[in-house]
Design a protein around this nucleic acid. Structure first.
Lengths: 138, 138
DNA sequence: GATAAATAAGATATAATTAGTCATATTAGT
DNA sequence: ACTAATATGACTAATTATATCTTATTTATC
């Protein structure tokens, strides 16, 4: 019942990008150093964000990363989904999962509510909101 | 960001015990079959519940498992804590963890709230409440 | 009392996931 | 063309979750 470290890296990276000059490319090493994350692993993480359409990258000199979306249109829930693939906290809550007792199952009911609560909280604030704070744990 | 399967096994086992004749020993194989869980793995899971004081076991013929607590005094949150060891969804939220930016960190703030929401939902209903439903997903 | 059957307990092994590193390809400036 | 900066993608290692196997204990039966 934990966020993966990669999700945290992704969030912190995005915030870092929000706080950088708009439109400018930022290189991943700088972000990795600032936020104390393993550089190569961060690159991998960035790839996922690229595929999710949240950032865009350019190779070569003067290359780097920048946001591809508006900071106020992305929440931690979005990042979580992009990185971890799904939001279901238990298999029985996955969309395509069939369970004959779905309606009656009390466990599922509690988990369903829990998941909704998680989503609600993680969707409350956007990257733009988060970036105002400027500092985070390392 | 998922419950472990073991946590689910534990919850389902406890509900099974709540629904069995009070005070009677139930054997783990029966529970495993009824709930479609791997028997030996369930045994391991039960051990954790024993150490947490939630159930008591007796070996040998006529042995088995039974609840050691009142069904209305245990919530899924309690089980989660017993099985997964901690409730923190991110390292920065663990009790003993020091982070100089704790107060100001916006990421931590969101995660903190999320964690509280999770706990609130998982603490809402006790085993006694859950057991009323009788069926669950398999 | 000895033996066998039932049962949990504990140790070990496998599989899956997460985290991290290394080698390659691409781009831009010189 | 060459070199340095940079992302990309393949590979490796570590951790965690899951499952199985072996051993110890208890009770009933003979």
């Amino acid at each position: 019942m934990q966020l993966t470290r990669q999700t945290e890296y992704a969030v912190r990276t995005l915030i870092e990008l929000v706080n950088s000059p708009p439109g400018a490319m930022m290189n991943s090493r700088t972000i990795a150093e600032k936020q104390n994350m393993p550089e190569k692993f961060l690159n991998k993480t960035i790839q996922i964000l690229v595929r999710a359409g949240m950032v865009e990258t350019r190779r070569g000199m003067q290359g780097g990363i920048r946001l591809a979306v508006s900071p106020d249109s992305v929440t931690i829930a979005d990042v979580l989904k992009a990185i971890e693939g799904k939001l279901a906290i238990n298999p029985c809550l996955e969309g395509d999962r069939y369970c004959e007792n779905q309606g009656a199952c009390p466990v599922r009911r509690v988990l369903q509510r829990t998941q909704e609560a998680i989503l609600a909280e993680l969707s409350r604030e956007t990257l733009a909101d988060l970036a105002k704070g400027e500092v985070f744990c390392s």
